[in-house]
């Protein structure tokens, strides 16, 4: 075995330790078993399961919604702002549209720009209608299309751990986060940082 191969092997092992969570089987209650492809506000496609590795705040919304949906963004942002800088770096925020017919990439981009979301951390995403239904079922979000094109829907923020397991949830509450939900988010972020997945 050449020295180069040894180096390559060592790098592989190291990589395996750092990204160990990606190689181990998903826990049975992980949402990342869902075979769903998401498309973000910049038109990038990625599998839902690729979110594995960091805690994620997930919610469902639609861009033409006037009442609760802006509040959903406010609520996720409220959590984001309440965290300290190092905690914040460990979190991703993903908002999934329940209105795939009208929420194309351009519509997602419009809201992302208008709300000045940091797309390093935030993704506004769309997927096909059947995947929306499955994702909502897994998240416990209930929604119904109304005759006028609006939707009735629950406005839950769901906190997933690095392996995609549901850890906490909170109804959208506006810019001031629900304290218990913030604490759960913080505890998870600090735990992930001190105990990287795979250790």
């Amino acid at each position: 075995m050449s020295l180069r191969m040894l180096f390559a092997l060592a790098a592989l092992c190291l990589g395996g330790a750092l990204h160990g969570a990606d190689n181990t089987p998903l826990p049975g209650d992980s949402l990342y078993h869902l075979d769903v492809t998401l498309t973000d506000q910049d038109g990038r496609d990625f599998p839902l399961a690729s979110l594995r590795g960091k805690p994620v705040l997930v919610a469902m919304f639609y861009t033409s919604c006037r009442y609760i949906c802006p509040l959903i963004i406010d609520s996720a942002r409220g959590v984001e702002h309440a965290l300290d800088a190092s905690e914040r770096d460990g979190l991703r925020i993903v908002l999934v549209s329940i209105d795939p017919d009208r929420d194309d990439v351009a519509a997602l981009k419009r809201i992302s720009d208008r709300r000045r979301l940091d797309t390093g951390r935030w993704s506004l995403v769309r997927t096909d209608a059947a995947s929306v239904r499955r994702l909502a079922a897994a998240l416990g979000v209930r929604y119904r299309a109304l005759a006028d094109g609006e939707f009735n829907h629950t406005s839950e923020l769901v906190l997933l751990d690095a392996d995609g397991r549901r850890r906490a949830s909170s109804e959208a509450s506006g810019p001031v986060p629900v304290e218990s939900f913030l604490q759960a988010t913080r505890a998870l972020l600090n735990a992930s940082r001190n105990d990287p997945p795979g250790d």
């Binding site: 009442y67 609760i68 949906c69 209930r142 929604y143 009735n152 829907h153 629950t154 506006g174």
Partner: peptide, 22 residues
């Protein structure tokens, strides 16, 4: 899961109450 989404409720604050948009 969508049939009995209860009457419109935009009250804030109670995490046990289902809240709806529209």
């Amino acid at each position: 899961a969508a049939m009995l989404v209860s009457a419109d409720n935009r009250e804030q604050g109670d995490p046990d109450v289902m809240q709806f948009c529209g």
